[in-house]
Simulated scan of single mutants.
Amino acid sequence: MLDTTDAALVHELQRDGRVSYQRLSELLGISREAARARVQRLLQRGEVRIVGIVPPSVAGIETVAHVSLDVAGPVRAVAAMAAGRRAASFVSCTAGPQSVITEVRVADEGALEREFAALRAVPGVRGLEVFRCAELVRDAYSPVVAGVRAGPPPELDTTDRRLLGMLQLDGRASFTALAERIGLSQPATRARVLRLLEVGAVHVTGLVESRALGVREAAGVGLGVRGPARAVAEAAAALPGVNYVASGYGRFDVVCGLDAPDRPALFTGLEAVRALPGVTRSETWVHLDIVKESYTYDLPIDQAIGSPGTPLRE
């Protein structure tokens, strides 16, 4: 568990992963050196990673699906194979109606069908049940509401896309280090990064290891609703402990993810979701082993985002 000062540091890093040590010093009332030492310790222990989160639309991701796998026999091998798919952003072994849950994020319908075919071909998989996401109301690591089809992404050139790829790996990379990699001056690089942040092409944040925050339990819940799904999804996103909400169609109308420090708190959170006006049915699964959780995308640097190209491998 984090102490009070580390928890405050983490909160600020989640808001702005590139916040300066001087600013952290001012916000927390500690010395700049102490702020730096604490951040470095959190990073070295793996309790926090500073990364750039690129919205799906900016990365050319227009199609998102939540897939439940019906598995015969042991599930770990199935989960491992699902996690090996690049398109899988989340894979978990669960206690619930289905044994493995995965979220798939791809560019288009054709790519989605190819992922479904690959998952059906995994030994032990008897079938799939699918929830198609129409809108991400609350994404796992985004502090703002983000729609998958919320409009055209900002115009980016090859250099912008390279910078996004680098920030995905190291959100606190210095302007000097970034400039050396892309071959621009430090001021020009700084201006580009600030523009990318301003237009919402990337959000630099601290990804915190769940147990460092006291999170011991995690679950998902699928909802059937009466009337507009968006209203229920927005209400769910405002509840404590809810870290993910998507509205859509198929197996459910809304899917939520919840974190909690213990089983009673998790139950309380689930009860709050089930009690939302408009909810007519619910199905819950508890995450026993989260095998993969990654929201880093391959960003083509030679062609427009979303079209085939050479993935960034830097």
Rank of each mutant, 00 (worst) to 15 (best):
T4I: 01
D6E: 14
A7Y: 00
V10C: 00
L13C: 01
Q14M: 08
Q14W: 01
D16P: 01
V19F: 01
R23K: 12
E26D: 11
E26M: 08
A35K: 04
V39P: 03
G46S: 12
V54L: 10
P55Y: 11
S57Y: 12
S57A: 12
A59Y: 11
A59I: 06
G60I: 07
I61C: 07
I61T: 13
V67P: 08
L69T: 10
L69F: 13
V71D: 07
V71W: 07
G73F: 12
P74H: 11
A77P: 04
A87F: 14
S89H: 13
V91W: 09
Q98G: 05
I101H: 15
V106N: 01
A107Q: 06
D108A: 02
E115W: 07
A117G: 09
L119A: 08
R120L: 15
A121K: 13
P123E: 13
R126P: 03
L128N: 12
E129L: 10
E135P: 07
E135V: 14
V137A: 11
Y141Q: 14
Y141A: 12
S142I: 13
P143N: 12
A146F: 14
V148K: 07
V148N: 09
R149P: 08
E155K: 14
T158A: 15
R162Y: 11
L164R: 06
G165C: 04
M166E: 10
Q168R: 05
Q168P: 04
L169G: 08
D170C: 07
G171H: 05
R172T: 10
F175C: 06
A177S: 14
L178A: 09
L178F: 05
A179G: 05
R181W: 06
I182E: 05
L184M: 14
Q186F: 03
L194W: 09
R195M: 09
L196Y: 02
V199K: 02
V202H: 07
H203C: 07
G206F: 00
L207N: 01
V208R: 05
R211F: 01
A218G: 02
G227K: 02
A231D: 10
A235S: 06
A235L: 02
A236R: 01
A246P: 00
A246D: 12
C256D: 09
G269T: 06
G269V: 05
E271L: 12
E271P: 07
A272Q: 13
A275H: 06
L276I: 08
P277T: 06
T280Y: 10
S282R: 01
S282G: 08
L288F: 01
L288Q: 10
D289A: 12
I290M: 09
Y295I: 05
P300A: 08
Q303E: 08
S307K: 10
R313Y: 10
